[in-house]
Computed example of a mutant assay.
Amino acid sequence: MTAVRPAGRALLVVWFVLPLIPVAVWAVSNQWSFPAVLPQEWGVDGVRSAVASGGIEAFVRSTSLALTVAAVATPLGAFAARALARGNVHFPGIVAAILFAPLALPPFAVALGLNVLILRARIPSTLAVVVLLTVAAIPYTTYLMRVAFGAYDPGYEEEARLLGASKSMVLRQIRIPLLAPALSGAALLAFLVGWSDYVITLLVGGGRLVTVPILVASFAAGTGNDAVVAALSIAAVLPPLVLVILLSRLGRRAAR
């Protein structure tokens, strides 16, 4: 059993890293034509083109958008999950159906329909994108936090209150630390929704909010842009990968 766990982790790392190797090679090659196994000419022209085409600005926009969605959708999902788990809402089945409805609706149809209303209401496109992506992320955060609250023992809070702890102390020192793994997982899912979205950002943003996925798609639609697409793809993969590694390490430390 001791040897199985490291082997399983190694296989998991290979599963995720192996597809990225050709992309990483493309990003640092100026010429790589079939049937050559390796690039005929190494270089960073693709990286330079990605930066010159607004790659850094798109990276900043994507990061800001994803962090905003995570910051809003995570607490909202936690509040909704707590209310559902404790039975504090009327008609919980209907409320749950409304919360999880974005998972059943096609994003393209929703974005296309709401875009008309957003334009007529003169809502800023960036704000509209944040709101819609938050709505799209809430089902994931609500589901994950509902599972966490289902396994949560409120007895710890009751004991703390009997010992004289205030509500704020209970929240800061008991509830949040015990729910921290679920909260971090919910925040990661919300971040991924905001980071990887293409349809809502493109349609509702009206092309003014250029993020990394939009930039990747625009270069992928052309020909001869393989090195640029590879460089942008690496930039798109790195933040989620770093977050997963950080959360896994934090989870191990918390388990110890």
Rank of each mutant, 00 (worst) to 15 (best):
R48P: 01
V44G: 11
G54N: 05
A109Q: 03
N30A: 04
G87E: 08
A97W: 00
L112F: 14
A111Y: 00
A71V: 08
A66T: 02
V51T: 10
G54S: 11
H90D: 09
W32H: 04
L105Q: 03
G43H: 04
V69S: 07
P102N: 07
P92S: 08
A83P: 05
L76V: 15
F108K: 03
F91H: 12
W26H: 10
V51C: 05
P107F: 01
A73C: 10
G55Y: 00
I21V: 15
G43T: 01
T63N: 06
P22Q: 04
A85G: 08
V44K: 01
L103A: 12
A81M: 03
W42A: 12
A80S: 13
A27S: 14
A24N: 05
T74W: 07
A101N: 11
S49E: 12
S53Y: 04
A85K: 06
T63G: 15
P22T: 10
V89Q: 10
G77L: 01
A70P: 14
P35Q: 01
D45F: 00
T68A: 15
A96R: 09
P106F: 05
A36E: 14
P39G: 06
A71T: 08
S53C: 08
S62M: 09
V47F: 12
I98T: 12
P106Y: 02
L38M: 13
A24C: 10
A66C: 08
F79L: 15
L65Q: 11
A97F: 05
A85Q: 01
S62D: 11
V95P: 10
A73W: 01
A78K: 04
W42F: 14
L38Y: 09
Q31E: 11
V69G: 09
A97Q: 05
V17K: 11
F59W: 03
A80E: 06
L112Q: 13
